[in-house]
């Protein structure tokens, strides 16, 4: 299963980025292969307009089963994510990526 995180860095110990559209990095963990990869999203983070749908488009291409983030996507991004059919968990904005993953496994995050 592929799980993606919105984060401010590229490590397990990096802080989560509470923002969806303007997240600095998109981290992806594949728990079957135990593979940890990232996408640099800072080009989108610095754009004036349409960051939400653009980031959502990237997630659509990564095609994960689960998204873990902070505040959650806005309306435009949500339309795109809905098409991709991933589960979205929010409320992990103040955690490290590792803590967010643990919280997700324990069922402590809110499903959108």
């Amino acid at each position: 299963m592929k799980i993606v995180f919105t984060a401010k860095g590229t490590e397990w110990d990096s802080m989560m980025d509470p923002r969806f559209g303007r997240t600095e990095f998109i981290l992806m963990y594949n728990n079957e292969k135990d593979e940890f990869t990232y996408t640099d999203n800072r080009d989108v983070a610095n754009e004036a307009h349409g960051a939400g749908p653009r980031t959502a488009q990237r997630l659509f291409e990564l095609n994960p089963e689960v998204l873990i983030t902070g505040n959650g996507p806005g309306g435009n991004a949500a339309v795109v994510l809905e098409k991709a059919g991933m589960k979205i968990f929010i409320g992990a904005g103040q955690m490290t990526v590792k803590e967010a993953f643990e919280a997700y496994k324990k069922g402590e995050l809110k499903l959108l």
């Binding site: 307009h49 349409g50 749908p53 653009r54 659509f60 435009n76 339309v79 795109v80 098409k83």
Partner: peptide, 22 residues
């Protein structure tokens, strides 16, 4: 060509976000 990400391609479809369109 859209500077505002108001037009996005998802696989075999094009989505338009009227609120973002300039």
């Amino acid at each position: 060509v859209c500077n505002f990400h108001a037009v996005i391609q998802l696989m075999d479809q094009i989505m338009v976000f009227p609120e973002l369109c300039h």
